[in-house]
């Protein structure tokens, strides 16, 4: 099951990505992974490559790795029925101002942004074992947006980049 951007999806994403005019983009890259969490090191390699090309510092690179792992693992765990193989497309686009990751799958409609935040003030005894993933994505990224387009889940994560231009710093 190959995931490609259909016409309608492209149109829809233009709303989100209108800042990503082709001539203005510093980077456009993508990777397709199966819904197998053993492939997370490949995602890390992809994110590290993006961060290196954008010359981001190590701290930011680690946080982006974390946000992407949490968001993608969530899709790997929940988008497709257990035992069924499905693909996940991860795209990175950046200009001087922001870096946008788009995560697309053809699984069940699933809006991770609708999930309630984890309560990080609870004691060890009260803490549930799970539920931190999307919370971390929210903490690290500047915005998260979910759309269901053409029977695909489209999750868009945006991170403002520290501007290099004087006056915006």
């Amino acid at each position: 099951m190959k995931i490609a951007r259909s016409g309608q999806l492209k149109k829809s994403l233009q709303g989100t990505l209108d800042i990503m005019e082709q001539q203005d983009a510093r980077l456009i890259r993508s990777i397709t992974l199966p819904n197998d969490t053993q492939t997370i090191p490949q995602l890390a390699e992809f994110v590290d490559g993006v961060c290196e090309e954008l010359d981001l510092d190590m701290g930011t690179a680690m946080q982006l790795n974390l946000a992407l792992e949490e968001a993608v693992v969530n899709v790997m765990d929940y988008a497709y029925p257990a035992g069924t193989r499905g693909d996940i497309l991860i795209e990175a686009q950046a200009n001087d101002v922001r870096l946008i990751f788009t995560i697309i799958d053809k699984g069940f409609p699933f809006d991770p942004t609708a999930k309630e935040d984890a309560d990080v003030t609870l004691s060890a005894e009260e803490r549930p074992i799970g539920g931190l993933g999307i919370y971390l994505v929210r903490q690290i990224m500047d915005s998260i947006n979910y759309e269901r387009v053409d029977d695909q889940n489209v999750l868009t994560l945006c991170k403002q980049l520290k501007s290099v231009t004087a006056g915006e710093a």
Partner: peptide, 15 residues
Amino acid sequence: YISSSGLRLFLTVLK
């Protein structure tokens, strides 16, 4: 590096 899957293991040890 640690992600929530690792944090979960740390919490399990503590609990």
